[in-house]
Design a protein around this nucleic acid. Structure first.
Lengths: 210, 210
DNA sequence: GAGTGTGAAGCCATTCACAGCT
DNA sequence: AGCTGTGAATGGCTTCACACTC
């Protein structure tokens, strides 16, 4: 029943939804594809194609019904209830992410933070208590969580990731600069800041005269 | 003289280089394409194609000469001297990035940090002094820096980015959850953690039975 | 035999362009 | 007139597969 939706389209509809929610707050009820496109610096054709792929139809005269579209996207993504994740590694970066997501409004909540440093146990950071690694299993048993954020040192990443997979995690956003070797059914998003920076610097380099 | 190298290839050769440096430390002088590929979970054909694109040739019997290849990549990327960047916004995330890059070994150094909060002026974080926004121009004059990391609140991002461009920055790694509207010759890498997480959660969702 | 270098094929994603609707 | 929905064209990236080399 569920046709395959391209990766890139998934990414974009997530962003469309955020955008739509914002437009909705401005009191509007409909948008045109080119408006949505402008918000995200994309072509209107792309927006239309994406919506086509998730099976949504607008009306020619008024464009897309915002409320309906949000609902369709949410249904497609299957995340009505908001998103609960765990965070592993409460260093600088871990704290930054905690405070970012748990600062209130967001639909994503970090419900548990794990760190190996016993000094941190029991501390509550941005409303999230820090627990020792041993408690991971229990935490995951108590609530259905299939996604983890990994912000541990590079040296520990592979081992921790394997542990996560063993405990039932199926998606990992990995900030450690290491390519994880995990079974193919695990989805890993690699955030490699170093590569991003080097690439950006390359793109930004003073152009050699042609 | 400089043929266009595909975006994706740039990203990968940056990673090949890191990988090569590591292999080199293990005392080896040559690698085969399939070895390099294995490190990064890629196909050997891809590695060979990438190296072809940057105009490097190995020897059939021993593979690629590591030292030469590193040099060729570095020459292609044109970043012999290491990479100097500025960071705008010294919040949690900014601090995390500072400590990550300025902790020693990395080739990338954050040489200046800017924050609007006067309480932070003069403080030195991970060896990098925090300066007020007014000093940005001088800092950029003193040394050639064309890349910036943007870790300011979403509300400020667009304005700050425009300022950066005005001061000569040509590449921005943007962590603020806002699509920046900048001239087309500016390269922006958007790091949208929220989207990444939502996407990962979608990919990791319990599969609906087919 | 086990590599590399590379044209050709295949695959995706994006854009074009236009029929159809209101 | 201005929008949506969508086949068809385009373009970029990846993989195949094989000639060639040591």
């Amino acid at each position: 029943m569920k046709d395959k939706i391209p990766n890139k389209t998934i990414e974009r509809i997530i962003q469309y939804r955020r955008c739509l929610e914002q437009i909705q707050k401005e009191g509007r009820s409909h948008v045109f594809s080119h408006e949505l496109a402008a918000h995200q610096r994309r072509s209107s054709a792309q927006v239309r194609r994406d919506l086509m792929l998730i099976g949504y139809s607008g009306s020619t005269s008024k464009g897309y019904n915002i409320a309906n579209l949000i609902q369709t996207i949410t249904h497609t993504l299957n995340d009505q209830e908001g998103l609960r994740v765990v965070l592993i590694g409460v260093g600088h970066l871990g704290k930054a992410i905690l405070s970012y997501f748990n600062a209130g409004r967001a639909k994503i909540k970090v419900v548990a933070a794990i760190d190996a440093d016993s000094q941190k146990f029991g501390r509550v950071i941005s409303g999230c208590p820090v627990s020792p690694p041993e408690q991971l299993e229990q935490i995951l048993l108590k609530q259905t969580i299939s996604t983890a954020i990994l912000t541990v040192p590079a040296a520990a990443a592979q081992e921790v990731a394997e542990r996560l997979v063993h405990e039932g995690i199926r998606g990992i956003v990995n900030f450690a600069p290491v390519k994880l070797k995990l079974p193919p059914f695990i989805h890993v998003e690699q955030v490699d800041i170093t590569t991003l920076l080097e690439k950006t610097a390359f793109m930004a380099r003073p152009k050699t005269i042609t």
